[in-house]
Amino acid sequence: MNINDIKSTGTKATRDGFGQGLLEAGRKNPNVVGLTADLLESLQMQHFLKEFPERFFQVGIAEANMIGIAAGLATAGKIPFTGTFANFSTGRVYDQIRQSVAYSHKNVKICASHAGLTLGEDGATHQILEDVGMMRMLPGMTVINPCDYHQTMAATMAIAEYHGPVYLRFGRPAWPMFTEGMPFKIGKALLLGKGTDVTIFATGHLVWTSVEAAQELAAQGISCEVINIHTIKPLDEKAVLDSVKKTRAVVVAEEHQRFGGLGDAIANLLVHNDPVPMEYVGVKDSFGESGKPNELLDKYGLSKKDVIWAVKDVMDRKKS
């Protein structure tokens, strides 16, 4: 697979993929139910509500109660999908998730939109950059951060078929689509382009950014292997180690704090198995702010040029 073959077929928001995926999952399985905390259309859950009104629960602006009700629904055999912003899906309800969902191993799907800086103008109160770290730390929690409309739709349908708690993270803006027809399997990394000099592991919106960076680098004669890690936990350890064995240099790109996210997951794996030079593309211990998504990604070091610099830096370290 050549990175230059990856092409965008237009833009759509990942949350739209969630809305469509939820509708399809609901059609396939009558046990799928939906809940929202006053963010129905932000999460694109209105499609599900329209078709299955009796299977949808509006809980108002009360996220803690939403998680608890979802845990109770799951106890009695339903497959609840909760929908609110990533900030209110995690930090606000961490203890509820910890006790009623994760520790109790409930089949609850915590679906979190508007994650990261690309939420944009609403600013740092809503731009959570710590959620992956929080969710990764919970024993038994599956953490998935799909990269485009199609992958989010596929992931939403896949988690309905999987038994256990899941955190599904996606975003607000329209974003390039490029994974149509590609396979999606929970816990299975997706190779987007083979390469020999550096491996770029990317998740979420930063996957497209990494594809564009790798294409530009290819034109400069630098061969990047691009691997999409949509499932951050459980990590596809074999895919990571096999690639690193070959390239001996790693860049990780994610719309998240450098602490606790995909970068730390991979660093942890490598430090125990195969330490190699590694660079992070992520937010450096900082809150975000208001602005347009691309302005924010640029200001906080999450743009295509930041991926390119990270690749060049890590190649220098590999040589020395």
Partner: peptide, 13 residues
């Protein structure tokens, strides 16, 4: 503080 919520969920199911 979490039990009433869970009970509601089970009752809805």
């Amino acid at each position: 503080g979490q039990g009433i919520s869970a009970a509601i969920g089970a009752a809805l199911a």
